[in-house]
Every structure is written in C-alpha cells, then in structure tokens.
Amino acid sequence: MRTAVITLAAGRHQHLTFQHRGLAAGSRAPDQYVVVAMDDPELGAVVSGREPLAAVVDCPVTNGNLPLALARNLGAFRALQHGAELLVFLDVDCVPGEQLLERYRQAALDSEHRRSLLCGTVSYLPPPGPSGYRLDELDELAEPHPGRPAPAPGELSRSEDHTLFWSLSFAVTAETWYAVGGFCEEYEGYGGEDTDYGQRARVADVPLTWVGGAPAFHQYHPVSDPPVAHLQDILRNAETFHRRWGWWPMTDWLEAFAERGLAHRDPATGRWTLGPEPEHPHDNA
C-alpha cells in the first residue's frame, strides 16, 4: 500500500527537522513525504538532502490567516496524483513513533476498518533538555492525551463519536478521502476545521478507528490556555461551523474567553461576538 505522509508548516523548522528524523528511523519508510509550505519560502532548504526525500508544495497565504484546510487538501491532491493509496497526516510538531506508519498500514488493510478515519495516539512532550529530544526516549516522556482513547498495541477500536477527531495524527485510504470530500476551505486560521472534517465523515457514514501502537509525540512549544492569540480566528471559525452544522464547537475556549471579557454570546442572536458583554442601563440601577 503506497503511503504518503503529509505535513503543513509555516516556520517551526526545528520541529519539522525532528519529525523528518523520526520518519527516517521508522520501521517503514513512506513512499512520499509531502510538506506543504504556507508562505514559507525557506522550508525547502530545511528538508532537502535527507531521507525520506520531501516534496514541497507551496500554499499561498492571502490575508495573514494560515489556510490549514486548503493546505491539507493541496498536500492530499499532490500525494494522490503521485499514486498514494494511504494518506497519513501529521502535525508539524508531531514526531512519529517507530511503528506508526506500519500500524496505520495494517489498519488500512483490515477490511472492517479500512473505510475509517484511522487515529493514533498523541502524547504531549515536556520541554526538551539542552540537547533536545532523543527518539529512543520519547515513549518514556509522556502518556497519550487523556481525552482520547488509547488502545493497546495491535488493537483497533471503532468509535462513532466524531467530536473526538483531531488532525494531529490520522490516516485515510484514498477511497475514504474521496468519500469524505477533503477539508472545508471556508476555515482560515486556527481552530474548527478538523472538527468540521469529523462531521463531514459522520455524514458520509465514515467511522473513527483508534489505532493502538501508532503513537505520535507532540513536541513542546509555549501555548496560552485559552489560546487568546487566536481569538479572532476561533470566533470566525466557530461562526462558520455553527452555520454549517447548527451547534457551537470549541465551547470550552469560547466560555473561557467570555470569563476574561474577551468575547460574549449575544442573548438576542445566540452568536459569539468579540469583546465583553455590554452593560445594560438596569444593570447599575
């Protein structure tokens, strides 16, 4: 089964380099390594000259918001054009475990699960030491994210809870990719496009299959919780999602923004809006 690994990058060159090393050290090499450069002309030099050989696809950024959905679709299109039968998507921060590609391949060959979104575990790594991470120690540094299933190695666990889908590490056969229809390109910037993809899979009657023994390790980088740097992206993308599916995603973040006075839900329209809830005259009476 011809396998393509697809990742998106805009900066994060050190993280991408370590991901590249992880792929080279795996038990199975990808047939293609497609790196989508979102307005990052230096990225080609980062991945050149090492195995597996990387194909760089340029993705324009027209208004300052990273087009993550478009970039994934461009990466998939390039891989499929060159004969990929299995698409493995990895976040640029994610380093594949040694067996990740082999386990995804085995799951894709299983007749019961091949028409699924195949999802491996993701473990968030602590900050690296002065010499960085070592591939042989990643398993010891972090446990899989507690908010997602973590089947034992060799186990496949089917789920109909599409709200649990995330795009950090997943795989689909070419057939499944066409059945779901790719990512909705109305989303730009951070948040919501992978939740939307899970709903597209649900409508297409494509389940999730959690794949044991296919770990990815998310390299540390500073984050804010809630992600206030992406406030406007999240509000805009949440509005898009609500229009498409009739319910609000990312509610923990939206409510955390509201607690900080950064956003509020208009009681008249039900929409989330930038800024604190306005005071009404009777509030101070």
Rank of each mutant, 00 (worst) to 15 (best):
L70K: 07
L70T: 06
A71K: 02
A71G: 05
R72E: 11
N73S: 01
A76Q: 12
F77C: 08
R78I: 03
A79V: 15
A79W: 02
A79Y: 12
A79M: 07
L80F: 04
L80P: 04
Q81R: 13
G83D: 04
G83H: 11
A84G: 11
E85C: 01
E85G: 15
V88P: 10
F89S: 14
F89E: 14
F89T: 09
F89H: 14
D91V: 10
D91I: 05
V92S: 14
D93W: 12
C94M: 14
C94Q: 10
V95Q: 13
V95S: 12
P96L: 09
P96H: 09
P96D: 06
G97K: 08
E98S: 01
L100M: 15
L101Y: 07
L101S: 03
E102C: 01
E102I: 02
E102Q: 14
R103Y: 11
R103W: 07
R105E: 10
R105G: 04
R105C: 06
A107D: 04
A107R: 01
A108D: 13
A108P: 02
L109I: 03
D110T: 14
S111G: 00
H113I: 06
H113Y: 13
H113G: 09
R114E: 15
R114Y: 11
R114K: 07
R115L: 15
R115E: 15
S116N: 15
L117C: 09
L118K: 10
C119V: 01
S123W: 01
Y124Q: 08
Y124L: 14
L125N: 05
L125W: 05
L125G: 01
P127R: 12
P127T: 02
P127N: 03
G129T: 08
P130I: 08
Y133M: 13
Y133C: 06
Y133E: 14
R134W: 00
R134N: 13
D136R: 06
D136A: 02
E140L: 15
E140I: 00
L141A: 07
L141C: 00
L141Y: 00
E143C: 11
E143K: 15
P144S: 13
P144M: 14
P144A: 12
H145K: 04
P146R: 04
P146E: 10
G147Y: 11
R148V: 02
P149I: 09
P149E: 08
A150D: 01
P151Y: 08
P153G: 07
P153F: 08
G154C: 09
G154I: 14
E155N: 09
L156K: 08
L156Q: 04
S157K: 14
S157G: 03
S157N: 13
R158N: 04
R158S: 13
R158E: 08
S159Q: 14
S159M: 05
S159G: 12
S159W: 00
S159N: 01
S159R: 01
E160T: 07
D161Y: 07
H162C: 06
T163H: 07
T163C: 02
F165L: 10
F165I: 15
F165C: 11
W166M: 12
S167G: 13
L168S: 00
S169A: 15
S169R: 15
F170E: 05
